[in-house]
Design a binder for these strands. Structure first.
Length: 434
RNA sequence: GCGAAUGUAGCUCAGUUGGUUAGAGCGCUGGUUUGUGGUACCAGAUGUCGUGAGUUCGAAUCUCAUCAUUCGCCCCA
């Protein structure tokens, strides 16, 4: 029997896991800072629930199995479980309902770079009844912006668009029936040359003249203000188009009021998102210098979250950080500050077993002062104890030996600088806590 | 689901037209005399060369199969 881990499942060493947990904690705290409440739903659900609103692609990738007579499935994302949750508890929830959820989701697809079968999604969503204020679409941007800033990530941009613009535009060209196909193609524009894009449009049976217009429309360049102006200049007489433009304008201006640096958001009309339940604003986040990472955070607005479960209307807007991908790609580029494999601030070592009692007592004292500390208990040469302390990269080493015991003090060694000093208990605690 | 590539020590890899006991660096273990690590020096361990079969006097090297991994496409975080 050889030990191995399934492909597409991430497993980390302690020094990496510590960084991962830190990122999770920053995300969690930021989400709560914006007033989102925590939510946890089961990893397993009835298959019929998870497959309720999905297209063919989900069915192909979802892990599904039978236990007894029950058809079960592992959650594919956190949005469908949220839809079920809202349908189930809407009478007990207070709207607008803001929730966050950080959890693993499962997709049985072929693992590739940045693609996992088990990965963390860190979702936020705001759900309301009947109508949801458009300003929330800007708030979602502010949350992501704050998280990325706090995580000290490389330069990034949140690209946004409004689906109503393109669908209104296509409607005005009288090719509304091709909307889904065109959207799928638009999503690929960054990956394929323009000629190939035009050819694929031609394959849809659209006339050359329209195709040029579509290409021109989705590749409008400029800063946010310039793009908004260009969109207004199109002067398209279509209700959906006008609504989309107005929404986009509001989101941009409110984002500024929320304190987002305009450098970090960019209107991009080629962002459409594959998932067909989005109806308005859509988001995707990329790093300026690492486009190959793919989108590390995306989402959008949907008009009707729980429609498959009930008649009431619940519009929402949400976004999700793909934490596993984010972590994996940053690690691959050496962009993570990976430290030692221990959360300990101090390690206590004794010169000989005779001082074990003092060591254990001191550890208790440090922990009562909220200082993560540990006693090294393996009996070996003192040199080995030093090597251990060095290897786990613990910031402080506390030594107890004959002299210290006699004088009733401790030797505190800063492992980074090598400096050491003799301190009494209260001085020691102060020095380590600093 | 479709297409392509790659499998040699824990990791990254070398291994010359098939030729004897398969190598390097990093890491790991021990040591350089007993209260001090990170540097240096010395020594050491670890491989059924992915697996199975075939060709050959002889295979890490050639052929086939198989498994695994990786990279594209599709779709997505």
């Amino acid at each position: 029997m050889t030990a191995r881990t399934l492909q597409g499942f991430m497993e980390l060493l302690p020094q990496e896991q510590i960084v991962m947990e830190h990122m999770k904690s920053v995300i969690r705290h930021t989400y709560e800072l914006f007033g989102f409440a925590p939510l946890d739903t089961p990893i397993l659900e009835l298959a019929e629930v998870l497959l309720s609103k999905s297209g063919g692609e989900t069915e192909k990738q979802i892990y599904e199995f039978k236990k007894g007579d029950t058809d079960l499935a592992m959650r594919f994302d956190l949005t469908v479980p949220l839809a079920k949750y809202v349908a189930l508890y809407n009478n007990d929830l207070t709207f607008p309902f803001k929730r966050y959820q950080i959890g693993k989701v499962y997709r049985g697809e072929r693992p590739q770079k940045g693609r996992f079968r088990e990965f963390y999604q860190c979702d936020i969503d705001i759900i309301d009844r009947d109508e949801l204020n458009i300003v929330y679409d800007a708030e979602v941007l502010a949350v992501i912006y704050t998280v990325f800033k706090k995580l000290e990530l490389p330069a990034f941009k949140i690209y946004l668009n409004n689906r109503k613009l393109l669908s209104g535009f296509l409607e005005s060209l009288n090719i509304r029936d091709k909307t889904v196909d065109v959207l799928r193609l638009v999503d690929k524009i960054k990956k394929i040359p323009e000629a190939a894009f035009l050819e694929e449009l031609r394959d849809l049976g659209l006339p050359e003249e329209l195709n040029r217009k579509i290409l021109e429309f989705i590749t409008v360049k400029g800063n946010n203000e310039e793009i908004l102006q260009a969109l207004a200049a199109y002067n398209i007489d279509n209700e959906s188009y006008r609504a989309g433009l107005e929404e986009l304008r509001t989101v941009i201006s409110q984002a500024r009021n929320l304190g987002i640096n305009p450098q970090n958001i960019q209107v991009d009309l080629s962002i459409t998102r594959g998932l067909d339940y989005y109806t308005g604003t859509v988001y995707e986040t990329f790093f300026d210098d690492y486009p190959e990472f793919g989108s590390v955070c995306s989402g959008g607005r949907y008009e009707n979250l729980s429609s498959v479960f009930m008649d009431k209307k619940f519009p929402g807007v949400g976004i999700s950080i793909g934490l596993t991908r984010l972590f994996d790609q940053l690690r691959g580029k050496g962009l993570l500050k990976i430290g030692g494999p221990t959360p300990n601030k101090a390690l206590i070592v004794v010169q000989s077993a005779a001082y074990q009692t003092q060591a254990v007592t001191l550890a208790g004292e440090l922990r009562r002062h909220d200082i993560a500390a540990d006693v090294f208990l393996r009996e070996c040469k003192f040199k080995k104890k030093m090597e251990y302390a060095n290897k786990i990269k613990v910031p402080y080493l506390i030594i107890i030996g004959e002299d210290e015991a006699a004088q009733g003090n401790y030797t505190l060694k800063n492992m980074q600088t090598g400096d050491q000093q003799r301190l009494k208990l209260d001085e020691l605690i102060k020095a380590v806590a600093a």
